[in-house]
Write a protein that binds this DNA or RNA. Sequence first.
DNA 1: AAATAGCGCTAACAATTGTTAGTATTTTAT
DNA 2: ATAAAATACTAACAATTGTTAGCGCTATTT
Lengths: 199, 199
Amino acid sequence: MAKIKRNRNGTRKDVIIAKAAKLFREKGFSATSMRDLAEHVGVEAASLYNHISSKAEILQEICFKTANNFMSHIEEVDATPNKTAIEKIQAILRFHIKQMLDNYEEVYVSDREWKHLTDPYLSNMQSQRRAYRQRIASVIEEGIRKGEIKPIDAPTAVLIMLHAVSGIESWHRSKKKIPGELLEDNMVQILVDGLRKQV
Amino acid sequence: MAKIKRNRNGTRKDVIIAKAAKLFREKGFSATSMRDLAEHVGVEAASLYNHISSKAEILQEICFKTANNFMSHIEEVDATPNKTAIEKIQAILRFHIKQMLDNYEEVYVSDREWKHLTDPYLSNMQSQRRAYRQRIASVIEEGIRKGEIKPIDAPTAVLIMLHAVSGIESWHRSKKKIPGELLEDNMVQILVDGLRKQV
DNA sequence: AAATAGCGCTAACAATTGTTAGTATTTTAT
DNA sequence: ATAAAATACTAACAATTGTTAGCGCTATTT
């Protein structure tokens, strides 16, 4: 069998991970076998192990790459001066939506399949997710204090935001897609107008 | 080993399905083995087959019971006269939240694991889910026509609503839970105020 | 009391799982 | 051209998978 074709700027490991992300999204981590993955990569199962050390490692790479991605972004947003809480929330929301549109497979997988990580990665991911939600909640609470946002329960608002965005998977599968920008505007409008205090 | 203890008004099959729902939620359908399930039921794996015919059947029962539950409710809501679109949306939302709180395991599982159904159940479930979303979208479009709801993309709104509600899983796991009613009010407020036209 | 049905057990099955060892082949570096 | 490094292959492994067969105990019905 021929070698794994790698694109420019990408290792063969990257190819494997990308294919794995697609399969993990479609069938779930547990229901995806290494022989399954190998077939889609165009190689025998054993050959995969020249590039990765285990099935678990693939999930780890997907999850932590994505998590770090989101974490760096929120740190950046939070550090930007002269931004209202509403603006910060909008920036976070738009980033989530954009990530979901651009890196669909990996974002989706890391959101739904991280439970199949094993310790110590599992605990690590759990606290990373907790910390991330906490940061958003803090922005919302800041907005409430400043009178920009209605006095609602901040964790509930975070929960709604994050899960609403993850719903883009349905949109992705939908036949009659609306354009990406329109989707983004609609989501931000619906969610943020629910947050904004009505004066 | 002793027999499976069944509660009043419940068959032994019901006990198995309830335990399975819990495990399917925690570990996913594929990652849950029949021996795993048997252990939690307090019986050997083979004994399960005196009550169910296959692992697949368990998932089918969970998914279709839940789906029918939601479908009957929306039909009921839709048939109620003298209800504004906003009121209908609120009723649907509150029902979802209540179901999520009362039948957590089964609702969660049927939402996240239905992909592991096999045909013909898979196709059946797919069209049932599509039909359900379509009904909600129709209510929203009705609301838009009547001027109750902002002119947003109805499928997007449905997507946000349904996924926001499914986020209650996070709440379920949360240490510092706010009371169920408060959660419900917060969610409905945030989501519906985002929908309601500002006059 | 006898017959029947319900339900548990052990043992086993074929298939599939992730992974390793050892070897051959192809690419890269010298 | 030769040596070295990558990377593919085949074959096999032990463990786990869902499920069935067959047997025996126990509760229910006759």
